[in-house]
């Protein structure tokens, strides 16, 4: 299966199953478009008529182009057949009951009161709670015990607001560091924070121990302060931006990114990304809000079209900044064409409910942070392990081949079947589809690929 698109003045052909990407001119684009259903003579006669008057388009040129397409097909780089369906369940079956990553909900409470919060202001539709050190320690032991031969283990400190349980976070990191050598493991810690409680201790510890920090900022002050307010109704922008700037400056190049959410209020979200760049932040992300369709924050069909144009605007502006020697990154555009994941990972996706789980302050296990708070999604707990094995098997079945709707989608080996939580919230089924999410995803991948083509053409590539 191939996908052709035009963006930024480039004609681009994506060969879905080989992963190949071709930058072509308009004549080659036409040849490739006609190739599957026409003979060489038909292609030549059709295009001689279409490009009559173009001196560079003659019969010899066209036959050479057809030969190039044939050579690419024979080398498996164009019109590659899909031979991967039998591999669909391989990685998760091979992984068995291995768990390699946990999202530790160290705080089901928050010092902000954001109306659009998917976690109902950090409480996940339940009681306020903080995870004890004993529960967190058991979660880390559970992870090590169930990690099999995996060396790299990931622990994300999440909430609510994890800095409201900061001493426990530090104790858990120290405990993990104390056991990782003996256990032959490599812990990677990450932290997601709204920034209000950042101080010098947090900055020093994070910069020493956290491989990445995710900093919540929605962009322009008026956008951020409209929704990210404290319990007195006061915006948080002026309090957190200086703290974020200090933390990022002190990180000295270690991983971080600014993570914003855009809503119906700001589908023109690139203004917010560029504002963050103006504040000195270079690692950026803005994501569409996750909420019920009737919610005032929900994106409308009209918004979705605006957002797609915004993704293009962002890609063009990022290329401009790159040419000027002051690049920024955008989470979804950081594709790695040569060192990216293997076919097994591309098919199997994020691993929620199998190798990745969320742990509540009480030690209950859920498929991921977005399912916490709904009892029917509880997998088990960190003492007994996964007891709802039927539910785990449902998640094990999530992959790029699990949905009939994806059968003719060029992007399925880029999205790996998509986000189970988004599918559930949109359709009521973890194997459903979220059509608006698909539209946005495909546009983002087109933009990311166009940037790679442009970087190559302009000599901007590393």
């Amino acid at each position: 299966m191939i996908h052709q698109f035009e963006l930024g003045g480039y004609h681009i052909v994506v060969d879905s199953c080989s992963g190949s990407i071709h930058s072509v001119d308009e004549v080659a684009a036409d040849v490739i478009g006609l190739y599957p259903d026409h003979t060489e003579d038909e292609i030549v006669s059709t295009l001689l008529a279409r490009y009559a008057g173009r001196p560079d388009v003659n019969e010899a040129e066209l036959r050479e182009c057809v030969a190039d397409v044939t050579a690419l097909k024979e080398s498996g780089q164009l019109f590659a057949p899909d031979t991967f369906a039998p591999l669909a369940g391989y990685l998760k079956a091979k992984s068995g009951d291995i768990v390699k990553a946990l999202c530790l909900h160290v705080a089901h409470t928050c010092n902000l009161n954001c109306s659009y919060c998917f976690a109902s202001q950090g409480k996940y539709h339940g009681e306020r709670a903080l995870m004890s050190f004993e529960t967190g320690k058991r979660a880390l032991d559970f992870l090590v015990e169930h990690s099999g031969t995996r060396r790299n283990l990931e622990v994300d400190f999440f909430g609510g607001e994890p800095l409201m349980n900061w001493d426990v976070v530090k104790e858990l990191v120290r405990y993990a560091r104390a056991i990782e050598k003996e256990k032959g493991k490599n812990f990677r810690f990450t932290l997601t924070t709204n920034g209000l409680l950042i101080d010098d201790d947090v900055i020093d510890f994070c910069n020493r121990e956290m491989s990445n920090v995710v900093l919540s900022l929605d962009g322009r002050k008026e956008i951020h302060d409209a929704l990210r307010v404290d319990y007195a109704g006061n915006g948080s922008y002026d309090r957190i931006v200086p703290k974020f700037q200090k933390l990022v400056q002190a990180r000295g190049g270690k991983g971080y990114y600014m993570r914003g959410t855009f809503t119906h209020r700001n589908p023109d979200f690139t203004k917010d990304l560029f504002h963050m760049a103006d504040l000195g932040f270079t690692e950026l992300s803005m994501e569409p809000v996750v909420c019920a369709p009737g919610d005032p924050a929900a994106l409308t069909d009209e918004d979705i079209e605006t957002v797609k144009k915004e993704y293009e605007t962002l890609a063009f502006d990022m290329l401009r900044r790159e040419r000027e020697g002051r690049p920024i990154t955008f989470y979804h555009y950081m594709i790695d064409l040569t060192g990216g994941p293997c076919i097994y990972k591309r098919i199997s996706g994020c691993g929620s409910g199998t190798e990745y789980m969320a742990v509540t302050p009480w030690g209950d296990l859920y498929p991921c942070h977005q399912f916490v708070g709904e009892e029917k999604w509880k997998l088990g707990d960190i003492w007994q392990g996964v007891t709802n094995t039927e539910l785990r098997e449902r998640f094990r079945g999530c992959n790029a081949y699990a949905r009939e709707e994806c059968a003719d989608c060029w992007a399925r080996l880029w999205c790996s079947g998509g986000c189970a939580a988004n599918a559930y919230h949109a359709s009521g089924d973890i194997r459903g589809v979220y059509p608006a999410g698909c539209e946005l995803f495909k546009k983002r991948i087109e933009c990311a690929i166009m940037m790679k083509v442009a970087e190559e053409a302009e000599g901007l590539a590393e």
Binding site: A28, Y344, K345, A457
Partner: peptide
């Protein structure tokens, strides 16, 4: 003239030969 430029990409078919699961939860192959 060359009307087609192919970017260097990881060969997905070849990657089926060598699924270790060490990559980060979702990206770089490790």
């Amino acid at each position: 003239m060359t009307r087609i430029k192919t970017l260097k990409t990881r060969d997905l078919c070849a990657s089926a030969e060598k699924g270790c699961g060490e990559c980060q939860t979702s990206q770089k192959c490790e």
